[in-house]
């Protein structure tokens, strides 16, 4: 049981919590947050695998991959948030329309 083991287990727990949220939460914002949590778990695992146990040299390839992954994660989050905003706009608009229709009746 080294420090690395602890890091990997907590990273996987983070991934699991995110996946659970993605499947059980119905709100879009929560789903987006859950996906981000999953991504953070994966990044942590990658960083730990590059860490190098027992004083061996640091492997830079996973670190570079994490840097790439963060940018991808930001892009997808931004796109998902805009989509969620649009969906909410549409829902609000249709709700307003039905409310107006009910007022006419």
């Amino acid at each position: 049981m080294t420090i690395t083991t602890g890091y990997i287990i907590s990273a996987l727990l983070l991934f699991g919590i995110g996946m659970n949220g993605l499947m059980t939460c119905s709100h879009q914002l929560r789903k987006i947050l859950a996906v981000n949590l999953m991504a953070s778990g994966v990044f942590l695992i990658l960083i730990v695998t590059g860490f190098g146990t027992d004083g061996s040299a640091i492997d830079h390839v996973p670190h570079a991959m994490v840097l790439t992954g963060i940018v991808i994660s930001v892009s997808t989050t931004a796109l998902a948030l805009t989509l969620a905003c649009r969906i909410q706009q549409r829902l609000n608009r249709s709700a307003d329309e039905t409310a107006e229709g009910n007022d006419d009746d």
């Binding site: 990997i8 996946m19 061996s56 040299a57 390839v61």
Partner: peptide, 25 residues
């Protein structure tokens, strides 16, 4: 199901011995 998956992933990652990667040298 997710707890099972996380346990399995834990086992899979920890079982993997620190490979002879391309080191800095």
């Amino acid at each position: 199901l997710i707890a099972t998956l996380v346990t399995f992933l834990c086992w899979a990652i920890l079982k993997e011995p620190p490979g002879e990667d391309l080191t800095a040298e």
